[in-house]
C-alpha cells in the first residue's frame, strides 16, 4: 500500500513539474528533503528523550496505572488483544490522554512505546496486528480539547473570538474518529 502511494506521489510530482515548468524547484526540493527529515528528527530527538523520561517517571510512580484504570473499559473494548494486564495498556491510555490535552509532542514518543509493546504481541513481524492499525488510525484522527495551534493563529490575526471554533472542532473530530474506528473494524477482515 505505502509502496504504491509513495511511488505515485513521486511519479506524479515529476510529471507535474514538467507540465508546470518547475523542474528547477523540484530538483532543489529533492536535494533538501533529506536535510529536512534529519532536521526534524534532530529537533524531535530532544523531545523524545524528554517524554520517554517523563513517561518512565509516570509509569514507575504508578500514575499511569490510575489513568489506565479509568480508561481501560473503553480501551479494552476497542483493542481486542488488550486486557487489563497488558503492558501496552498504560502507554495507549497515556497517548490518548496527551492527544486530548493537545500535547502532540508527548503523544508521539509515548505512542511509539505503545506500538513497540503492541508489536511484541504481534506474531507476524512484517504485517501489523488489528490493534496496531487501530492505534495508528486513532492517532491520525485528532481528538483534542483545545486546538491551541489553530486558536493561536486565529488570535494573531485579530479574530473576535479565537476559540469559537473549539466546539465545532471537537464535534467534527469526534465524528471523524468514530468513522475511522468503525471503518477499521469493518475492513480489518479484508486485509
Amino acid at each position: 500500500m505505502m509502496n504504491y502511494i509513495w511511488a505515485v506521489i513521486i511519479i506524479f510530482s515529476v510529471v507535474s513539474s514538467l507540465l508546470n515548468g518547475t523542474s528547477n524547484a523540484l530538483s532543489t526540493g529533492i536535494i533538501t528533503s533529506g536535510n529536512t527529515a534529519v532536521d526534524l528528527c534532530l529537533t524531535l530527538l530532544g523531545t523524545f528523550c524528554l517524554w520517554n523520561g517523563l513517561m518512565n517517571v509516570a509509569e514507575k510512580s504508578g500514575i499511569t496505572k490510575i489513568i489506565s484504570k479509568i480508561m481501560s473499559p473503553v480501551i479494552c473494548r476497542l483493542f481486542k488483544g488488550i486486557d487489563k494486564d497488558s503492558p501496552a495498556l498504560e502507554p495507549i491510555c497515556l497517548n490518548i490522554t496527551s492527544n486530548l490535552l493537545g500535547l502532540s509532542n508527548a503523544a508521539t514518543p509515548i505512542g511509539i512505546e505503545a506500538m513497540k509493546r503492541l508489536s511484541n504481541n504481534n506474531t507476524n513481524k512484517t504485517s501489523p496486528s488489528n490493534d496496531m492499525v487501530l492505534f495508528v488510525v486513532m492517532n491520525s484522527a485528532a481528538l483534542r480539547i483545545i486546538p491551541s495551534t489553530v486558536a493561536g493563529i486565529r488570535a494573531s490575526h485579530n479574530s473576535a473570538n479565537p476559540l469559537e471554533i473549539v466546539l465545532p472542532s471537537i464535534l467534527v473530530s469526534f465524528c471523524a474518529l468514530s468513522v475511522g474506528i468503525i471503518m477499521t473494524k469493518l475492513t480489518e477482515r479484508f486485509f
Binding site: 505505502m2 511509539i112 512484517t126 496496531m132
Partner: peptide, 14 residues
C-alpha cells in the same frame, strides 16, 4: 518505529 512496512487498511481508514 517497529519496522513494519505493510500497513494493511491503515491508510484507507485514516
Amino acid at each position: 518505529s517497529v519496522g513494519i512496512k505493510k500497513i494493511r487498511h491503515t491508510a484507507i481508514c485514516s
